[in-house]
């Protein structure tokens, strides 16, 4: 093997908190006192659990209204998709596209990518490992972009309060959507990307 040896082969492990190289036999990091693990503990199960929870919450996030708009006594409730459609029909396709990407495409992509990573990691697949690692970095980066929707609703609801003239109030849907974003971020954080490369070795665990 031209590659450098695995840390486990040398009887070493990395402290996740301070990056100190420790012996495998150490239970706590001698420098920062953090608990030592060879990999993120229970990574795949945790990620699965959080992913499933996020998927469950994604349903009410899309079905329930996220915003209540009351304009001159004419109140209406909008879900995320109906808002996108309304913007699109109203001619502002750019805003519609932005909301659609931030609140539909990005979460869906995260679900898909995380599920893909989890399945391949569990099956110790050696397929496209480099690309998978790149995908993981990508969803880590774009993860919090989905919070855009939540921020918009929070901001608008705080600003547009003109009593009878017009009022905008958040609805339950946006809470679920925020939970979805937080859960997917937690899920991608709990996934250990080194598991992708563990497939290179039969007995690595």
């Amino acid at each position: 093997m031209s590659q450098p040896p695995y840390a486990a082969d040398l009887g070493l492990q990395l402290c996740h908190d301070c990056g100190q190289v420790c012996r495998l036999s150490d239970r706590d990091c001698p420098r920062c006192d953090a608990v030592l693990h060879r990999r993120k503990p229970n990574s795949i199960a945790r990620t699965w659990a959080l992913l499933v929870a996020a998927l469950i919450f994604y349903l009410p996030a899309n079905l329930l209204p996220v915003m209540f708009t009351d304009l001159f006594g004419h109140g209406s409730e909008n879900t995320i998709l109906s808002g996108v459609i309304e913007f699109w029909k109203g001619g502002s396709w750019d805003i519609a596209l932005l909301i659609f990407i931030a609140s539909v495409i990005v979460p869906c992509m995260k679900f898909f990518v995380l599920a893909l990573l989890l399945v391949t990691a569990q099956r110790r697949s050696r397929w496209a490992m480099r690309e998978r690692a790149r995908l993981y970095r990508f969803i880590e980066t774009i993860g919090y972009w989905s919070m855009l929707d939540v921020l918009v609703v929070a901001l608008v609801a705080a600003l547009v309060q003109f009593r009878t003239l017009s009022t905008i109030e958040p609805r339950l849907g946006i809470l679920f959507f925020g939970l979805v974003v937080v859960l997917t971020m937690l899920a991608s954080m709990s996934f250990d990307p080194r598991l992708i490369w563990d497939a290179e070795r039969q007995d690595a665990r």
Partner: peptide, 24 residues
């Protein structure tokens, strides 16, 4: 032993989510 305990705890999250969804 540790893993078993952690497994059950982490899976509470989706169970809670499912319960919330179901209750709704």
């Amino acid at each position: 032993r540790q893993r078993r305990a952690r497994v059950s705890l982490v899976w509470l999250v989706p169970i809670a989510a499912a319960l919330v969804g179901l209750s709704m």
